[in-house]
Design a protein around this nucleic acid. Sequence first.
RNA 1: CGGGGUGUGGCGCAGCCCGGUAGCGCACCUGCCUUGGGAGCAGGUGGUCGGAGGUUCAAAUCCUCUCACCCCGACCA
Length: 575
Amino acid sequence: MRMSHFVGKQLKEDPKDAQMVSHKFLIRGGYIRQLSTGIYSFLPLGFRVKMKIEEIIREEMNAVGGQEVVMPVVHPAEIWKETGRFDAIDESLLRFKDRSGKDHVLAMTHEEAAVHLIRNDINSYKQLPFMIYQIQTKFRDEARSRGGLIRVREFTMKDAYSFHLDSTCLEKYYAVMHEAYMRIFRRSGLKNFISVQSDSGIMGGGISHEFMSVNSAGEDTLFLCECGYNANREIADGRLPGKVSHSDLPPEEIATPGKKTIQDVCEYLKIAPEETAKCVFYTSEKGLLLVVIRGDREVNETRLKAHLQIEKLSYADDETIRGCGAVPGYASPLGLDDDKLKIVLDASVTEGSYVCGANKENTHMKHFTPSRDMKEVPHTKASVYTTIEGDLCPECSKPLSMARGIEIGNIFQLGTKYSAPMKALFLDEKGESRELIMASYGIGVGRLMATVIEDNHDDYGPIWPAAVAPFSVHLNALNLKEEKVRKTAEGLYDAFIREKIDVLYDDRDERPGSQFSDADLIGAPLRVIISPRNLEKGAVEIKRRGEKESVNVPVETALSKVKNLLEEMLKSAEI
RNA sequence: CGGGGUGUGGCGCAGCCCGGUAGCGCACCUGCCUUGGGAGCAGGUGGUCGGAGGUUCAAAUCCUCUCACCCCGACCA
């Protein structure tokens, strides 16, 4: 490609909107342009990178038996009603009517469409297992998009769906996909990524993993251990460090006038928050809930929902709290109207003694010892506190460290969550009708592209790994007015094209500084420079993006040298 | 959805407080000159100042409403 006619200009200044490095370079480099909040066009440069990434994904999906399909972006509401998600999902599912008034949605994911696609086609266990995948546009009406391609509303996603006859088969394939994902991210050039256990939320069923690029600008909070335990904050199960103090004394009331918050109580009584227990009231579709948790800890609502199998959770108001006999600000799990609420005793307070509310205005109680005092009170035990840095690894008991991450992919074991309501059945060996067992696997292509920049850049622009670079070679001709320069450059350009090497030829009569700056933003792994200075010695210069040193080679050997270097770079990326 | 902020040529901004009919840098066009890290000189093109209404002899500037976009938070299949 000749740069003189290449669409997508490189910008000198950072766009005002951008905070993240990848966002700045994607705009400045001429990769993408924003059309609306969270909605972007891809310029030729961005499209090329996107295609390269998609090709890696395609290869890896095909390598594990994937069969590529295309599914619609516009779905009739019916299939989403079959699974109940039409009503269950919030406004992020964009709903609209067609001319006849029929409800439709813009697909945010394709479980329903995939099941619909195969349910009449699959009827025997002999056809199982199999996997289909798509690389397509999806839409989620995110409450808040940000960070360029990191969090958008319209995006390209690779989604795969596998179908199995039993959970053994599913688990086996799930592990195969996990490996394929690791290869995809490695080949794309990510430097620091991990898979973490995650919550499956509305998606579904059982075990799930998120693939996270560790990045301080990431949106997710992760807890990591050197033993290999990695978990998203939503599912992390760090153990509490330190000893608990235990008292054999009976509960004893203590006046705490006007002290309603943990902080106030602690200052007043001169104790630490971890010596208190607090009562957190929630309303849910299963009624009023009370979580008794250590004063310094927060309730992890994701874990609470998962534990109680509920979907909706919100803080209860004071009036509701009084309704079960509790006094807001001074609440205690003791002496409540037990059939009006469900009490959850969090693992942070199952042992030890605490200061807790006394269910009386302006009064708390000391020596509250749940293991003893809760014996007569109906309750369930659960671990629903939020893990913090320094908690101990649930697997090896070393302290956990905290990190931020960008979610670049996820895999879910769905079970029969979709196949059951959508009646995707097959006949097993015994001739009995059974529901298909499913899993789904997603990768955000644009987000992955941005993350590759986050992991591979310097102050001047992206340093694309050869496997995903928009061009392999950036050919600079310094001073085109010199006939010799022009001839050599044109000759090499033609040679690269003949050899099917992706080359971007800067044939503009720009000064060297401008050419180099633009080349840095475009980030091709190899730069070939033709200049009067070098040509006097019959040489052209070859330089790797991101490295200071360059080599001069005779004009005649430039082509083969470039070919060798590219091969070498690609090989080192294939692991 | 809550809090904060910004809208003025393609991009980045000044002008607004204190009303008088739009300016700077970059980019772009022409010419000269220059060629190893975003040169220089000269001359140009391009904007109903996000939109609507109002106040006024006069509005980018003051008032009201509205839309868009950004940041923090909530949410996130």
